[in-house]
Design a binder for these strands. Structure first.
Lengths: 362, 362
DNA sequence: ATGAAAGCGCTAACAA
DNA sequence: TTGTTAGCGCTTTCAT
């Protein structure tokens, strides 16, 4: 078993990859804490202390160890660490899919904050094979991860029980509707929609079309409510014909807009519940031979990257997606430290980003 | 300070969690292999055999154990398993960003295949803090993962050396340009571009605008080459004025198309090196008051979801992204099994998907 | 076919 | 301040 050629410290130039006869395990050359201890002439507990930045290590010793670590290229084995210490430095991320800028932005925030905290990210997508969900969450709980993040979960009730029972730390991202009793971060959808609608009204629009998101999601409901509230507050009627139900996908923006534009008294502005649908709206408007914003104003929600790249640049309600990811991680990390801390539910503010897709009606 | 109440195993029955005096780590109620062994009345080695589907277990015993497992809700602790067995059942995925359908599709394929193989996915994005990349890859190598997947890596040379030296299994996705000596999966970009251009030519187009991708990427180079080759093969001139350099982002599709449309002799068709840029082209065409495909034909590359959802639905070259992800995982898993197997480099075929954005010139 | 026992590499008491 | 020593939960020989 010792026939493996130990891959020597590949410092100096002479890297003779001996391509070991390799019968044994294909483990990469692994330098363990023991090797470092030997190299530095200390016990391996001391090395552990140095690695973990514990107190009670003479500065001198610390340096000696550090050098040995560098010299040997030692990197701690996470698995062992986790097994011994009870913490894996991994958090699980449960997502439906990853193809959208929306998800991309959130994940990017998550990832960023996680790496700052030296945590790793284990990704799980929901459309996975029908693995028994229970087993699945259990795996996570069973030491694979220290905490769990759920983005836009469709019916989290399934896991949440298990999670709560085992007091496993988790945070929901962009999900409302489960009361205050779950840790979650989202954004002020109602406020955002209200502000956007108000903006349109103040621009002079009186007939404002609205395309909803998937109404089983709290975010979609809140946006619709914000739209209605603004109308009411400005003594404008809520015309059901102007409200089209969508589910956050582009084709519905297109078809919704077609419907709206075919109305006898067509709207002068269309507010879509997310940017992607707004893009669909823009297409439809153009296909009808109308100009944006001269003939029709278009407004979106989210402010994904693309929003500023389409023509004309889309006026939209910015939701701080990256920030949401970041914050969720912060909250999760706190909960990992202390699972008993009171449940927090944060809603980040939204901002109306005015670009060029809206103008007063002509 | 240790007054925390230990949450006892909440299974029915008599699970006497010996409630270790240690009020220690707040690990969720964990059923270990020992508990199962006790419950089933066998040694824990036997339980291990059952769990790992090893031979030499009487059918009878196996069932007894299985039942105990179900009853207790046992799930193996991956960390321990990994530490003892030398395999982590985790593969790392190195990505630049996740906001695009393109990435989404590949990751979805990866994820799918991985879950079939009972593997977990550790996600790393490249825009992460400037963690020393060496340490970084080393962490992976050091037992965190059994293999590594790199999607569209920009300059993988940095890691590749380390990876190769430690004979750590990896596969590149959608990257060419490092010779045959690296395991990789991509697609036939040249073929796809050739076929698309040929299609346009056969439709009757003689002046075909082309917007390139980021030319430091092999895929972009190959697509351009395919376009040129088709032109040449059909005795058509290569007009530099018709070739606009882009980098795969939408705004370049827009601006590129504007440039093209302003040409004295403007093209009758525009072929963008990816769908996203094609969308930009579509916007520009419409903004110029022209119709697709009546006035200008537009053609893309990739066939991301959105391509079939825009209006008119985009004719494009389909690249089997999910399949690429899948295949990469298969190759990686093989290499994990046997790191010495010969290096493979696979290019999946592309398909021209004809929708409604092209027609003969009028 | 099953059990006993030796670690995997590390953290965290406990000694010294 | 440092060393010694239990395990963490599991896979794997090696016995039986």
């Amino acid at each position: 078993m010792k026939k493996r050629m130990v891959q020597a410290n590949s410092n100096g130039g002479s890297a003779h990859s001996q391509s070991a006869p390799a019968g044994g395990p294909q483990l990469p050359s692994s330098v363990t804490i023991m090797d470092v201890a030997r190299e530095a002439g200390v016990s391996y507990a001391t090395v552990s202390r140095v690695v973990n930045n514990k107190e009670y290590v003479k500065q001198d010793t610390r340096e000696k160890v550090m050098q040995a670590i560098t010299r040997l290229g030692y990197v701690a084995n996470q698995q062992a660490r986790s097994l011994a210490g009870g913490k894996s430095y991994v958090v699980g991320l449960l997502v439906r899919d990853l193809g959208s800028s929306y998800m991309g932005a959130i994940v990017s925030g998550v990832d960023d904050e996680l790496s700052t905290a030296q945590y790793n990210l284990m990704l799980y997508t929901t459309h996975r094979r029908k693995t028994n969900e229970r087993i699945y969450v259990n795996t996570l709980i069973q030491g694979m991860a220290d905490g769990l993040l759920l983005i836009l979960p469709r019916n989290p009730e399934a896991y949440l029980d298990t999670l709560n029972q085992s007091r496993f730390p988790y945070v929901l991202i962009d999900h409302q509707g489960l009361g205050d009793q779950v840790p979650a971060v989202g954004s002020k959808n109602w406020d955002g929609a209200y502000a956007a609608t108000k903006y349109l009204i103040e621009l002079g629009h009186r007939r404002i079309g609205f395309i909803t998101g998937a109404l089983e999601l709290g975010a979609a409901i809140d946006r619709l409510a914000g739209y209605k509230a603004a109308l009411i507050d400005h003594q404008l009627p809520i015309d059901p014909a102007l409200i089209i139900e969508g589910t956050f996908f582009q084709p519905e923006g297109y078809s919704g807009a077609r419907t709206l534009l075919n109305l006898e008294q067509r709207p002068t502005a269309i507010f879509a519940s997310n940017d992607v649908m707004a893009f669909g709206v823009m297409e439809a408007v153009r296909d009808c031979g109308l100009r944006i914003p001269a003939d029709i104003s278009v407004l979106g929600f989210d402010d994904i990257d693309q929003a500023s790249h389409v023509y004309p640049p889309l006026t939209t309600v910015r939701q701080p997606m990256q920030e949401m990811g970041r914050l969720a991680v912060k909250m999760l990390l706190e909960r990992i430290k202390d699972p008993d801390r009171p449940v927090e539910r944060v809603e980040l503010p939204t901002t109306l980003i005015i670009r060029q897709s809206c103008q007063p009606p002509t």
